[in-house]
Simulated scan of single mutants.
Amino acid sequence: MSEAPAGKPAQGRVVARPRVGFLGVGWIGRHRLEAILEAGAVEVAAIADPSVEMAAEAGRLAPGAALVGTLDDLLDSGVDGVAIASPSALHAEQAIRALAWGAAVFCQKPLGRTADEAQAVVDAARAADRLLCIDLSYRFTEGMRQIRELLAAGELGRVHAVDLVFHNAYGPDKPWFYDPALAGGGCVMDLGVHLVDLALWALDFPQVNEAAGKLFAGGEPLAGRSDTVEDYAVATLELATGAVVRLACSWRLQAGCDAVISASFYGTEGGAALKNLGGSFYDFTAERYRGTARETLASPPDAWGGRAAADWARRLAAGERFDPAAQRLVDVARVLDRIYGR
């Protein structure tokens, strides 16, 4: 692929946009497809989904895309990148196959069910020298962007406490989410991954010295059960900086609203927090605290949901190859393993 940006003249010729295939086009997959189409950096060339109806619906969004049956068919169609939105148990194997074939990968979280699976994918991306990104979408909210800038500039002083919450009044509607072998875990794998990532990413990935969690299913301690996954979890991380991170996440919590989502950072010179508004999954405000005073950093509207996908597409079009920052995905996966006691 030419090093010139897609669609720009390179020595008197127009460079074709990279061709991208979509593997899995349920609600999330279609939403990310729309975001990539709106970015305009790549061509959606092929779509694969076990559901003929879902594939056809996605095809209406990208009428020029071929509807194919499998990942092999996507790869054989000559794509430069693959967006993966399949069940979690398939992510690592499918990503490795795509990378080994020579395609860049944008994958839904989790990258793998364990840190070993995630490491195998990152190793494959490094060996193939291909761009690998994960849909850690909350990084792309305007509020978290501004909070991270405050932290990087030392505006909050020495951060000593971080509290994160993601309670979802609903639960996944597909049976595989509740199978430990297929999902790798429950609400921690589904929601807690965002919380761990936000904490480490915002603080520039400090070393995690200790990590421990308590898991519950149906109001009772999970206690090593292998027939189900957790629907409520609390965890504590101790960082090498001396800071303590506390997180809680759940499915079907009776919280009086659709969702409770927040990420709060407290330092010696102030605090800052991202919080959802009115139980919304999509609307967030970010505030900075100085003692009892507060100021607004960001507020709705903020169309953040597809920004991670669009960012990957633009980077692919710009000719980016393996990004060593992908190793941080394994750091997050290792923390999840420790929360699960693995």
Rank of each mutant, 00 (worst) to 15 (best):
W176G: 08
G154N: 13
R139L: 09
Y178Q: 10
L164F: 01
Y340A: 10
G306Q: 02
P221M: 07
A152D: 14
L277V: 15
V165W: 03
R294A: 15
T114C: 07
A55T: 03
L237I: 10
A6Q: 02
V25Y: 08
R307G: 07
A183Q: 07
D123F: 01
I28G: 06
A318H: 09
A66V: 01
Q11S: 10
A55E: 04
G271D: 07
V245C: 06
F216P: 00
T292F: 06
D204W: 04
L37Y: 05
E93N: 07
R30F: 03
A115W: 04
P175K: 09
R294I: 01
Q146K: 14
A58C: 12
G69P: 00
G319F: 03
A66M: 03
A235M: 12
D76P: 00
A58W: 11
R288G: 05
H91K: 10
L75C: 12
T268G: 13
A125Y: 04
S86F: 08
K8C: 11
E117S: 05
A255P: 00
G81P: 10
R13C: 08
D190V: 11
V44N: 10
Y340S: 09
D323I: 03
A100K: 15
A66W: 02
D323Q: 04
V159Q: 09
A303P: 15
L222H: 08
A41Y: 02
A212L: 03
A248N: 06
D227R: 02
A259E: 02
T141F: 01
S226L: 13
A92Q: 10
V121D: 02
R315E: 09
Q11G: 07
D323T: 03
F265D: 05
C257E: 14
A202H: 02
H31Q: 11
D179N: 15
K275Q: 10
T296L: 13
F106L: 13
G218P: 04
A98F: 01
A118L: 05
V193E: 10
R126L: 06
P172G: 12
V260Q: 12
V42N: 02
F205G: 08
P300T: 04
G81M: 09
S299R: 14
E3T: 13
V234M: 08
L131A: 05
R30D: 04
S299I: 00
D258P: 01
G59K: 06
Y178P: 08
Q11R: 14
G7K: 09
G305W: 06
Y178W: 15
L239F: 03
E230D: 15
W312Q: 01
C187S: 09
T268R: 11
A85Y: 13
L253M: 09
G184F: 04
R328F: 07
L37V: 13
H194V: 02
V15Y: 07
V121N: 04
H31M: 13
G154H: 12
Y138C: 00
T241L: 06
V25H: 09
G154F: 11
L71D: 12
